[in-house]
Amino acid sequence: MSPRFHAPYPGWDILDKWESPSFNDITRAVLRRRLTEVHARRFFTPAEWLAVQALCDVVMPQNDNPRPVPLADWIDAALHEGRSSGTRHADMPSPRDAWRQGIAALEAEAQARGADGFANLERDAQNAMLRDVDDGKVSTEHWHGLPPQRFFRNLVLAEIVAVYYAHPTGQSEIGYGGPASPRGYVRMQPNRADSWEAPPGDWPDEDTP
């Protein structure tokens, strides 16, 4: 169903610029921590942990990444630290409770579909189930008033992409320029890139006219 992922900028790694004027001290310090400080699970229970890892895997499949981004670990850390976004929807509990409740609902939903838990569903069934969650085609009794779509989009998806595309792996994959201070960019015209940007990208036919 979903086409395999084709990387448009193979070989581009923003970390190659680590010593260049594109990086300053504070950015190096922040990224050093991001790359090295991965905490062990502190928030989720072992059972939830399996489901969360499977969820991250379905949402952001990384089987082609030589160094996969530890998404579940970062979500766990953010919840443990009580990181907030500034918004709590009135129909949602606090992020910690929402995650617990949502993961339980996903597990119950998976069990209703004949598996032990979300992690044990076949990949296609996982995809189908998440699409149903997004469409609201789920049994409401598992969700206890938690809005499935809001949980899935605003918490699960939003948090996973926030971690993945803040990571050099995700940023390099899309050909983003990466850190840029003190050096920014000179060439502002279409199809022009500075020598410290990714070389021109290459997309499969379906994305090219």
Partner: peptide
């Protein structure tokens, strides 16, 4: 990416493909 997923619910390889068009 957040705009993309919160508005369209896209995930999986399709999400990565859409993000690969970032530039």
């Amino acid at each position: 990416a957040r705009t993309l997923v919160t508005n369209s619910g896209v995930f999986g390889h399709e999400l990565r493909r859409k993000m690969a068009l970032y530039n």
